[in-house]
Amino acid sequence: MKVVTGVIGNDIHVVANRLMDLSLNARGYEVFNLGVNTFLEEFFDAAVETGAEILLISSLNGEAEGWSREVKILKSKYKTLDRLIMMIGGNLTVGSGNARDIVPRYKNYGFDLVCHQVDLNTGLDMLEDYIKEHRQP
């Protein structure tokens, strides 16, 4: 499966992004890594150009929420992204916060999978379960 990944906004925290690239490759995904400093439109555009089934966004520096509010509006302008699996992880709030509040909020923004301060491999296991559940014929 094809997956587009990267770090959203003006966020330069690159370490998790590199690890993500390695882990996704090891798990057999075809990875399109847009790297750090990637804007929301670029994520969607990359999904269109590559035909990716999964969009996996990282955010570490606290910008996540601002961008996530734009997701629904922007995504609705694309005519071919209805089946795109949307996932986000990293530090999804500024300062401390807990997953119980954060996860439903982000689902409301349009994400299928939300991993606030969840370890990468746990997150990717969740993704696999999700795919099994939702994409089996």
Partner: peptide, 16 residues
């Protein structure tokens, strides 16, 4: 002669 003109049809702004 001032060059040529083009019209581009692409899939997305950020790439094509």
């Amino acid at each position: 002669n001032g060059g040529l003109s083009t019209l581009i049809i692409g899939l997305t702004h950020s790439y094509s």
